[in-house]
Structure formats: structure tokens, C-alpha cells
Nucleic acid binder design. Structure first.
Length: 586
RNA sequence: GGGGUGGUAGUUAAGUUGGUUAUAACGCCGGCCUGUCAAGCCGGAGGCCGCGGGUUCGAGUCCCGUCCACCCCGCCA
């Protein structure tokens, strides 16, 4: 058969094309043999076109077509015809079909381990082992077309804004702070290692010193930590840094970028500016630093209303400066004991000792601890929370951190149950005024909440040597629907301040010199004030695509135990390779 | 590191208080069929019940261990 190219893709043909002679290539998505004629759905990543071979018209082509195995690769020559009364309204190409003149099987397929359909019921093990088949599914293929489009929109937008795309090394220096590093042994330098970058952070700051005042990169990052539905060992960030930046400048930049993406993908205009919320408020009212504001239902602190309660759990927590926090679920009479047990488990899974619940009936309160509360206490709680007849109150009492975190998790579960977390609704938020440091109980030292290059609110700088845990950082996260899309900060650009922060983090002067000497040196040669942000591209695409796992937007993801089922990596290596690298396996 | 759920035919699942030959659907193989839309009809083949021990006259089923996958906590500046 002639080696002529395809004339159309499998998504192209419409009624206007009727009468044309065409060449199509694609995969046999289904083969329906009726004895005297056979229908084949030919699929490529653009769509599906029905082709028909008729024994009475083209007996040779029919014989080949009738023997085609699903997922074989075909080249079809034929003529486009109107399907008349047999049109398929479910296909964009459904008004026409291609009457086959000649069929060539370019490559036959073995029976596939699972059908190539959108609502696949194969396990993820099977899907990941045969990832090339999984990726043939239109729903998954669409995710990667979307990903490509978002990257293009991002590049175009940042290019328009005058940004330069600059690459930074993959083989880097190991850093003490942050996540566990992936290490790469040096062949040339026995006993020494590179590390894969957790982010291009220090390099992009150096680029600011170099005068590249607007930098971006769609950068691969590596962190050797346990995986989750939204976390992989290697992931991609849209990474940016701007000289002479202010938080407002960066908010505007990112909002403009996200608005451009939403416009390009959904043709919708995002309302701007995005709302903002200080970290402390997020923690108190939503129990986390990335509140899902697709629904309200704020948590309410009721500690003082129950400080003198006969319910010992509440009173004890109040006495030791803990927190009693409550969540009102409206119109929840119908919630069963089983529902509430499920919520209790969410609370205990998230560190609470338990979940107290009260159903507010017309006559009386029922629930786990209702009998311990006096009428005055109930009245005070009702006033504080705005709860009335028919409502349910969920209450956690503990130290402030665990109590709020646990009830925050319960809040999300309640939102799920009430269907309030609509994946087609978009709720953006800036969380601001993060603390600079948090106490690491294991290391017995402060650690950076964001990273050690983050600057603080100027008036807090003098707390650095006295009360560092009270300092507020000039850091901000952008949140979408309860997911952290990205975060950034205004950086430190002065050597003396950076040295003081390293010291506060427990990094000795010598160690700071060894690990970050290049950065401290650079700051002494005219480092401009600068700041930046990085967005998690994979999570962004996951949300845009409505996917439930980051694995559905990464072409070749790893399992939760960090293996690649298709290539069977990681794997052992030859002893000769190890010898070259001066390594020995214990 | 901890908790939870699951693993039975190529795939997805059912399998009762431990008891005859381990079911079904789809897929596969053979046959029929000219308007299907993941075509339909008839017939057939296909099993290390994740793996290793144990209890028992007897284990897919009970016990112990282990591996794999997924979800969550820890961890992820």
C-alpha cells in the first residue's frame, strides 16, 4: 500500500466532508462484525471515527477488516459518506463514516489486559504496569493535552510580562534544611555526592543578584519523602522570582497568571483580587493553613463558655489553657450514629482524643455529653455558635493545635458529606502573615515554616534573638479549594540578616558557611531586594482536570511505595557500576 | 515508622457456620449474522484463590508471618 500520509485525524471528519477520499490512521477501538459487513471504531488522540467495510463492495478489505484485533494499528483508505438515519449523536464525527476501500494492519495487537475506555475498572496496578495502554484512554489523554496547554499559557503570560526562562542545575549541593535529599554519588570525587534539587530556590536568588530581574522556570523538583495521592517524589513547579518585588506585585502577577489560565481553559473570568486571610485566622476558624472556602462553616472557639462546665473534659482543657472549638452543622437531625462515629474517627485520626457532639432538639439537647451541660452553658454555646433547633454541634477539646486541626479535618468531611466541595467551583485565597518559625520538638530548635531565606515583617526583626516564634514572615500561600497551589515570600537579601536567621535556626556559622557560603557571598555584591513564588503544576492540573490523584496528570508516576511498575524501578545495579562510584551495599 | 482497606481466571468481582467438580460478567478461541455504536446469538477453553508457615480428617474461608496496591497520620523548608 502506498505510503501516503493520513489526510485527517480520527476527530476531524464532519458532514461537510462527505464525498471526500481520505486516509486515516489509528487504533481499532472496537470491531463489530455483522457477517456481511464490519464496523471499526478507529481511535487516535483526536477522536473516534467509524469505518465500515462491506463484503459485497470490497471483499478483500472486508476480509482484512473482519479479522482485525482490538488495539491493532490500522491505516484506512476510503470515502467519507453521510450516515443518514444511522448517525451517532454521541460522537463529534458521528454524522459520517468512512467506507473502506483498503485496510492495512500496520501492527496487530495482542489482547489487551483491560479495555481502553474512560470508565476503566482495571486496578491501578494493572493500569500502571501497562501505562501506555492507560494513557490511550481518552480521559487520561485529555489531561496531558490540558497540561501542555497550561504550560503554554504560562509561558506566554510570563513572556508577555518580560520574564526570562532560565534553567538551573539538576545536580546540586545537598542542603541541611527541608526535605530529605536524593543523593547522586560522584564518580570523580570519591565519597562525595550531589543532591537533586528540592527546588531551584538558591539558584533563582543568585539569578536576581546577577541582574535577571524576572526569572521563571517550569522546574522539576525532587523530595525523598513518603508519597500521597497529591505527592510524588519528583514533581513540577512553575517557579518565579522577581527583583524589587513586593507582596502586592506578586499577588497581582500570580492572579493574572491564574486568570489567564482559567480564561484559556474554561473561558471564565476569575474574580480579582483574590481574598486574603492571615494565617492565625485560618488556623482558628478553619483549623488549617489552606482553608477550603467553597463552603463557610467556620469553627467557633467556645472555651470560656464551658470553662466551668460540669463536663470534665471541657473544664480540664480550659484549665490548662487548651481550646474548646465547635462546628455547627445546620439541619442535621437525620445524621445517624454511624455518621457521627465516622466523624469521630476522622477527629481521632487527626490527633483529637475524641469528638463530642450535640444534637439540638426542640425540647432538649442529645448527644455524647449533653447531660453534663447546664442550661446556661447550652445557652452560651448556642449564642456563640448561632446554633438552633435541628442543628448539630461538633466539639473538640484539646491543646489549641491538635483541637483545631482535628475539627478542621472534621469540617472537610462534613463538607464532603453535604456535597459542598463542588469540583467545578473555584475558590481562591491568599493566606498571609505566616509565622517565621515553628518549634521542632525533636530537634529542640526553631525551624523555618517556609524556608530559611524568607524575610520577616520588618518590625518583627528585633524578635529574632529573643522571641523568634512570635515573628511573622513576609510569606504567602495561594490556596485553591483547600489545596495549597503554591507559596512564596519576599526573601532576605542582606548577608547580616541571613546570617542571623541561620543562627536562629541552629546552624553554626561554620556550617552556614559550608552549606550556603555562595549565597552569603553573593549578597555582598549588590543583591537586590527580591521575592518570588512557586506553584505546584501537578496539583494545578489535577484541580483543572477534576482528577482525584496526581498520578492521573503525570505521564509516568510512581506508586505510594515509590516504585515504577512499568519499568520496575528502582532496581539493583552491577557491582562494576558501584565500584566506579566508590560505593558498597551493606 | 503507625493506622485502615484490598489481593480468587487475561480483567473486574461473588464465594454462606471450614465440607462434593471454586461461580459470574467482560475479554479470549470456534461458529452464525449486512446498520452496529464497548453490536447480537450459540458453543468452548481458561485457576499456585498474592506468597510462606500453622490449626484441622478437610482451608479461598480460621491463626501467624510476609509481599504488593490504595487511603490516612507521621514526614513533605
Amino acid at each position: 500500500m502506498a505510503e501516503s500520509r493520513r489526510t485527517h485525524t480520527c476527530g476531524d471528519l464532519r458532514i461537510e466532508d462527505a464525498g471526500k477520499d481520505v486516509v486515516l490512521t489509528g487504533w481499532a477501538a472496537s470491531v463489530r462484525d455483522h457477517g456481511g459487513c464490519v464496523f471499526i471504531n478507529l481511535r487516535d488522540r483526536y477522536g473516534l471515527t467509524q469505518v465500515k467495510a462491506d463484503q459485497a463492495v470490497t471483499p478483500e478489505a472486508f476480509a482484512i477488516a473482519a479479522s482485525v484485533k482490538p488495539e491493532s494499528v490500522l491505516r484506512i483508505e476510503g470515502r467519507v459518506v453521510d450516515r443518514g438515519s444511522n448517525r451517532n449523536p454521541n460522537l463529534p464525527t458521528g454524522a459520517v463514516e468512512v467506507e473502506v476501500v483498503a485496510v492495512e494492519v500496520l501492527n496487530a495487537s495482542k489482547p489487551v489486559p483491560f479495555p481502553i475506555v474512560d470508565d476503566v475498572d482495571a486496578s491501578e496496578v494493572t493500569r500502571l504496569t501497562y501505562r501506555y495502554l492507560d494513557l490511550r484512554r481518552p480521559v487520561l489523554a485529555r489531561n496531558f493535552a490540558l497540561r501542555s496547554k497550561v504550560c503554554r499559557l504560562t509561558r506566554d503570560y510570563l513572556d508577555d510580562q518580560g520574564f526570562l526562562e532560565i534553567e538551573t542545575p539538576i545536580l546540586c549541593k545537598s542542603t541541611p534544611e527541608g526535605a530529605r535529599d536524593f543523593l547522586v554519588p560522584s564518580r570523580v570525587h570519591p565519597g562525595m555526592f550531589y543532591a537533586l534539587p528540592q527546588s531551584p530556590q538558591t539558584f533563582k536568588q543568585i539569578l536576581m543578584v546577577a541582574g535577571f530581574d524576572k526569572y521563571y522556570q517550569i522546574a522539576r523538583c525532587f523530595r525523598d519523602e513518603d508519597l500521597r495521592a497529591d505527592r510524588q517524589l519528583e514533581f513540577t513547579q512553575i517557579d518565579m522570582e522577581v527583583s524589587f518585588a513586593t507582596p502586592e506585585l506578586l499577588y497581582d502577577l500570580i492572579e493574572g497568571m491564574l486568570a489567564t489560565i482559567w480564561k484559556g481553559v474554561f473561558d471564565i473570568d476569575l474574580p480579582r483580587p483574590f481574598p486574603r486571610m492571615p494565617y492565625a485566622e485560618a488556623m482558628e476558624t478553619y483549623g488549617c493553613d489552606k482553608p477550603d472556602l467553597r463552603f463557610g462553616m467556620p469553627m467557633v472557639t467556645i472555651t470560656d463558655a464551658v470553662a466551668a462546665s460540669g463536663f470534665k473534659v471541657f473544664a480540664d482543657v480550659a484549665a490548662r489553657n487548651g481550646v474548646v472549638t465547635a462546628l455547627k452543622v445546620p439541619d442535621a437531625e437525620s445524621w445517624s450514629r454511624k455518621d457521627l462515629d465516622g466523624l469521630s474517627k476522622v477527629a481521632t485520626d487527626n490527633g483529637a482524643k475524641g469528638l463530642a457532639w450535640f444534637k439540638i432538639g426542640a425540647e432538649e439537647w442529645t448527644g455524647s455529653a449533653a447531660k453534663f451541660l447546664t442550661a446556661d452553658e447550652k445557652a452560651a454555646i448556642a449564642t456563640r455558635t448561632g446554633a438552633g433547633t435541628g442543628d448539630l454541634l461538633l466539639v473538640v477539646a484539646d491543646d489549641a493545635g491538635p483541637a483545631r486541626q482535628a475539627l478542621g479535618a472534621v469540617r472537610l468531611k462534613v463538607g464532603d458529606r453535604l456535597g459542598l466541595r463542588d469540583p467545578t467551583k473555584w475558590s481562591f485565597l491568599w493566606v498571609t502573615e505566616f509565622p517565621m518559625f515553628e518549634w521542632d520538638a525533636i530537634g529542640q530548635r526553631p525551624t523555618a515554616v517556609h524556608h530559611p531565606f524568607t524575610s520577616c515583617v520588618p518590625e518583627d526583626l528585633d524578635l529574632l534573638e529573643t522571641e523568634p516564634l512570635k515573628m511573622r514572615a513576609r510569606a504567602y500561600d495561594v490556596i485553591l479549594n483547600g489545596t495549597e497551589l503554591g507559596g512564596g515570600s519576599i526573601r532576605i537579601h542582606r548577608r547580616d540578616v541571613q546570617a542571623r536567621v541561620f543562627k536562629a535556626l541552629g546552624l553554626s556559622e561554620e556550617s552556614a558557611r559550608t552549606k550556603f557560603g555562595f549565597l552569603l557571598d553573593a549578597f555582598e555584591y549588590g543583591a537586590p531586594p527580591h521575592g518570588g513564588i512557586a506553584l505546584g503544576l501537578d496539583r494545578l492540573i489535577m484541580l483543572l482536570a477534576g482528577a482525584s490523584s496526581i498520578r492521573d496528570v503525570i505521564a509516568f508516576p510512581k506508586t505510594t511505595s515509590a516504585t515504577d511498575l512499568m519499568t520496575a524501578s528502582p532496581s539493583e545495579v552491577d557491582t562494576a557500576q558501584l565500584r566506579e562510584l566508590h560505593l558498597e551495599i551493606k
